[in-house]
Write a protein that binds this DNA or RNA. Structure first.
Length: 210
DNA sequence: ACATTAAGTGATT
DNA sequence: AATCACTTAATGT
């Protein structure tokens, strides 16, 4: 059995289910920046994240993006339950935030296991709940925080999911994630640096206030 | 040396 | 907070 599977999910699932996941799941290594699921695509697999981080994005009519939340190891994409079972198309885009290890579970298995394993059932329900809470936090952030606070929170979240306080990104990319302009990000980052909360370098930001 | 990309800034809405 | 217009700095060829 895969070590990472045992580590991330061993305490959740019974051995029999772990073995099924191990034999049926297709293991995939995906490098940073790859789109693993896109808006409008049918969902045939459910990804179990063994290692790495994935960002989940929504897109508007003009093609501009907005980051919804991050998935970390041990997480799965909640959209795939409802979509995968009902042969629906994806409403979101999933992009790897760092190099990631995935186990792809065929959509049919999701339903089979729901009936067969209570631990799987519990896992699905819990994951739904966690995703919902995550989404609520994002709504709060959008509604109640100023842009400078949003940028700092975004950097802190990002540092957390990639396990590194040095973030390799550009002002433009932060602007895309938060759905604002590069100029605004540059100005507010400068302010955050003056306040001692971050340190800026070219293509690289270090988060000090974690 | 030149082109390209990232980042900084003043002014305007 | 967004947009424009322009500058400066760093990096690639």
């Amino acid at each position: 059995m895969r070590v990472s599977l045992q580590q991330q999910y061993g305490y959740l699932f019974e051995d029999e289910l772990l073995v099924e996941i191990d034999t049926i799941g297709k293991h995939r290594h995906i490098v940073q920046g790859e789109t693993i699921m896109d808006i409008g695509e049918p969902i045939n697999y459910m990804p179990l994240l063994l290692d790495g981080a994935i960002k989940i994005l929504r897109e508007d009519e003009e093609g501009d993006e907005l980051l919804l939340y991050f998935l970390e190891k041990g997480d799965t994409c909640a959209m795939t339950f409802s979509c995968g079972l009902g042969k629906k198309k994806s409403e979101i885009r999933a992009v790897t935030e760092s190099d990631s290890e995935l186990l792809m579970i065929p959509a049919e298995k999701m339903a089979t296991w729901m009936a067969k394993y209570s631990s799987w059932q519990q896992f699905i329900i819990d994951s739904y709940h966690i995703r919902m809470m995550e989404l609520l936090e994002t709504v709060d952030t959008l509604a109640f925080l100023r842009m400078d606070e949003r940028i700092l929170k975004h950097l802190q979240d990002k540092a957390k999911v990639i396990n590194d306080d040095s973030i390799y990104t550009t002002h433009q990319n932060i602007a895309y994630d938060l759905h604002t302009s590069r100029v605004v990000v540059s100005r507010l980052l400068k302010k955050l640096e003056r306040e001692g909360k971050i340190a800026m370098h070219r293509n690289h930001i270090k988060v000090i206030a974690l």
